[in-house]
């Protein structure tokens, strides 16, 4: 059971954490708005966007370079 004084302290700590840094600014309104538009969905569950994007890039790479992709995979698998 939280006492009356605990809840504001938690809220204050949370706000201090959220506002620990000033917001990002690209020194241009258009660029800044595009930056915020593109990065907002990446803040929570970014893999919901990364996975389809990665699959799309891999398919495009295969369409462009063809069999070279298979050689690249063999190379990367030896990379560890």
């Amino acid at each position: 059971m939280h006492t009356k004084s605990e809840i504001p302290d938690k809220l204050i700590r949370k706000f201090q954490q959220i506002y620990s840094l000033p917001p990002n600014d690209l020194h241009n309104e258009v660029l800044t708005s595009w930056y915020k538009f593109l990065t907002a969905p990446l803040k929570r569950m970014p893999f919901a966007y990364i996975v389809p994007l990665s699959i799309g890039i891999a398919v495009m790479m295969y369409l462009v370079v063809g069999q070279l992709l298979i050689h690249l995979v063999s190379l990367l698998q030896n990379g560890f």
């Binding site: 970014p46 990665s54 699959i55 992709l69 298979i70 995979v73 990367l76």
Partner: peptide, 17 residues
């Protein structure tokens, strides 16, 4: 080819991360 596509997708995803 199927494995290569999956592997490259995975690697690109990890690179983005």
């Amino acid at each position: 080819k199927g494995f290569s596509l999956v592997y490259v997708s995975f690697s690109i995803g990890i690179l983005f991360w």
